[in-house]
């Protein structure tokens, strides 16, 4: 084989550190990290980005995503991101949040940020539970789903219905781009990457608030192996949380994405 025949088809994006993550084997938090790193690299934004990490399994996201980072109080990442963005408007600022963090503790902050049309990007990991604290019920837990704090399965009569966050935020005028994607298979991951790219471009071009909800697996707390967890996601989460674009403002629909 000559050198010309050797083609690199897969490598670690430079935005990711060379570390073994603390995530459980097969957890899609790692996939989401990779997509963010690839997108920011492709946009040439790696040196211009500030991330806001959540309280949740991704609390140490800054160990793996190799640019400036801050760590928010539980649920308050959008407020913290607002503070940074308003002070340094030319930086790309994003939050990375779980469903407990964003849709329970921090529902006030995310709604306020979206309705202000805050020029930030939110990557939202929906894994239907509180991963870090041992698998308790989250706002996204499906009806009947067993968790360590809904041991008989989520009873919608007493524990309410799951929140479809993307649909909810899409109702807000300040939200420019709101989409849901899934990380359970290769096609979903490719689509997720494109949505993440769009979300960051929206911010770059100053078009308003952008969020991508990513359906994720939590094999550890679901008590499933990775294969079964992906299947469970497809069978149970996708019907409740359909993939799609829930808000594409006119400006966003006319937006041109450069490069790539």
């Amino acid at each position: 084989m000559t050198e010309a025949d050797v083609k690199v088809v897969y490598k670690r994006p430079i935005g990711l550190t060379d570390l073994v993550t603390h995530y459980c084997p097969g957890c899609t938090h790692g996939v989401a990290h990779r997509l963010i790193a690839e997108v920011l690299e492709e946009m040439g934004e790696l040196n211009n980005t500030i991330g806001v990490a959540p309280v949740g399994c991704a609390v140490f996201a800054y160990n793996y995503l190799d640019f400036d980072f801050v760590e928010a109080a539980h649920g308050r990442a959008p407020a913290m991101a607002t503070g940074i963005k308003r002070t340094l408007p030319h930086k790309t600022v994003f939050t990375y949040q779980g469903d407990g963090d964003l849709a329970s503790m921090g529902m006030g902050e995310i709604v306020a940020a979206a309705s202000r049309g805050e020029q930030i990007t939110v990557i939202f990991i929906n894994n239907t539970n509180y991963g870090m604290t041992g698998g308790q019920m989250a706002p996204t837990t499906l009806p009947g789903q067993k968790t360590s704090s809904s041991p008989l399965g989520r009873d919608v009569e007493t524990q309410g219905y799951p929140i479809r966050t993307a649909e909810l935020l899409a109702t807000l005028d300040g939200a420019a781009f709101v989409a849901r994607r899934t990380l359970h298979d290769a096609r979903g991951i490719r689509m997720a990457k494109r949505a993440i790219r769009t979300a960051f471009e929206v911010q770059k071009q100053g078009l308003g608030f952008s969020m991508v909800e990513l359906l994720s697996i939590c094999p550890t707390n679901w008590g499933l192996n990775t294969t079964n967890a992906r299947q469970w996601l497809a069978e149970h989460m996708l019907p409740y949380y359909p993939v799609g674009d829930f808000k594409v403002s006119t400006a966003v629909s006319e937006m041109k994405i450069g490069g790539n």
Partner: peptide, 24 residues
């Protein structure tokens, strides 16, 4: 502290008492 909440998430409904996992 979580075991405390988890224990009551099972026991309170069992005895017909109120348990709510709050949003925050």
């Amino acid at each position: 502290q979580t075991e405390l909440l988890e224990h009551l998430s099972a026991r309170m409904p069992e005895l017909g008492r109120a348990f709510v996992q709050a949003e925050s």
